[in-house]
Amino acid sequence: MTKELVLYTNPQSRGRIARWMLEEVGVPYSTEILEYGGSMKSPEYLAINPMGKVPAIRHGDQVVTEGAAICAYLAETFPEAGLAPRPEERASYYRWLFFVAGPMEAAITDLKVFGVEPEPEKQMMAGYGSYAAVVDNLSHWFNTNAYVTGERFTAADVYVGAQVNWGISFGTLEKRPELIDYAARVADRDAFRRATEMDEALVKEKA
C-alpha cells in the first residue's frame, strides 16, 4: 500500500519550496493549510513539528521538516523522478544545498532583516563570513554552471532556485546577471508554475 503523503504549509511561507518539490516528484499528496499564530501552534501540529513552523511533510509514519531536507528526502525516496544526484554530482549537490540553507540564509537574515553584519575582524567567527562573500561565492558558481550540479536540474535547484528567486524578488539578494538568469531558468518549469498557481490561488482565497 502506498504511504500517505501530507504537506503542511502556508501559501505565504517557505512551504512553497516543499510544494514545488512535490510537484516535481509528481506523486499524489494532500495539503494541510496552517495559519500563523493559530493552527501552526496547535498541539496537533506541534506534535509533528515542535518548532511550530512550516513546511513539514508526513510520509506514512515519517516526518521531515526544513525545506532543504524535504527536497533531499523526496528526491531519494522517489528516485524515478530523476532529481537525486548522480555519483559525480553529489559534491556540488550537497555543497550548494547546504551552503544556501546555512551560510547564505544566515547572511541575508542578519544583514537584510536585522541590519547587522560582523565587523571585519570578527567575520572569521561567523559561518558565512560576510554577505558580500556569500553572494560572490554563489555568483561565481553560476557564472560557469547552468544549475547546481552543472548542466542538469536536480532537487538542489528547487531549494537553491527558490531562495535565489525570492532574494531577487524581495531585494535581499543582489540582482547580478548570472543570478537573474539562473532564477529564470529554474522558474521556467511546469512544476514550478503549477505549484505557484496553487499557492497564489490560496492567497487570493484569504484576501
Rank of each mutant, 00 (worst) to 15 (best):
F99K: 02
S169F: 13
P103T: 10
I48E: 03
W166K: 14
G52W: 05
M1W: 14
D157S: 01
V134G: 10
M40V: 11
L74R: 15
A18Y: 11
A162D: 13
D61T: 11
F98W: 14
K3T: 13
A201G: 04
P120Q: 01
H140L: 12
A126K: 01
D181C: 13
E121L: 00
V158Q: 10
M124T: 07
P118I: 04
S42D: 08
R193S: 07
K204D: 05
D181Q: 15
V134M: 09
R194M: 11
N10W: 09
S130V: 10
A187I: 04
D110T: 00
P87F: 06
L74G: 13
A184Y: 10
P103L: 11
L5D: 13
P43C: 03
G67N: 07
E88V: 01
L97R: 09
N145H: 15
D61Y: 02
G60N: 04
N10T: 08
N143W: 02
F170D: 12
T31H: 06
A187D: 09
S30C: 02
E121D: 04
P28C: 06
Q163K: 09
E151K: 14
M125Y: 06
W141R: 13
A75Q: 08
V64G: 07
R86L: 10
R14V: 12
N10K: 07
A68F: 01
H140T: 14
A156N: 07
G38C: 01
G67Q: 02
G67P: 02
S42G: 06
P118V: 04
F142D: 04
G15L: 11
N49P: 06
V134K: 11
A195C: 10
G161W: 09
D181E: 15
W20I: 13
